[in-house]
Amino acid sequence: MIALLIRDMKLAMRAGGGFGLGLSFFLIVTVLVPFGVGPESTLLAKIAPGILWLGALLACLLSLDRIFALDWEDGSLDLLATSPLPMEGVVTVKATAHWLTTGLPLCLASPLFGLLLSLPAEGYQWLVASLVLGTPALSVIGTFGAALTVGLKRGGLLMSLLVLPLYVPTLIFGAEVARRGAEGLATTTPLLMLAGITAGTIALLPFASALVLRVNLR
């Protein structure tokens, strides 16, 4: 399992994808927003938590199709299926690798992007906290979407259509934590809900992803 994780991480980094692309995408979204809504810092401060969460979500979404695509093409996914490692383990490792290469860098870089959008000072810790808690759910849900569409040519657009509605609860609670934090309100309730969603998806969704992947490899 560890070996698979390390291999996946190496692959992601060598492809220049992982860290680089997701972060660059996040940066571009953040830079484009003021062009769209105007440079007024009060307005930017108000929408910053939501924009940052959306940016993180889209950056996650963009890198999802790489989770299985390469392994599917060169047949190593079939090898993994016949290996002693259970399929549930494989998808969990894949999701972890995706989070480490996409979600984690986004969390770490988000304060910098918050700065660009004049996020209020109280907001930073909550923004990072909500992203750290929420992005694992994004990766796990995304892995499910990637597993659903793994065999399809041009599955990317379909996968977005399938995954985005599943992201709704995570986005709502995540952005709510960041927003309330930035406005200096109590954040406990949405934070707990967000943690609950993340814990629930991590516990249950790998079974669905594994089931779907087995169907696709049949």
């Binding site: 499910f144 659903l148 399938l162 509605p165 599943l166 709704v168 609860p169 709502i172 609670f173 709510e176 309730t189 949405p190 809900m193 969603i197 969704l205 669905a208 089931l211 779907v212 169907v215």
Partner: peptide, 19 residues
């Protein structure tokens, strides 16, 4: 499978949206 997973998330969304 999508229908089953979707159902869970639809209910979750309902509560999230209410909140």
């Amino acid at each position: 499978v999508l229908c089953i997973v979707g159902s869970v998330f639809a209910v979750l969304s309902r509560y999230a949206v209410n909140f």
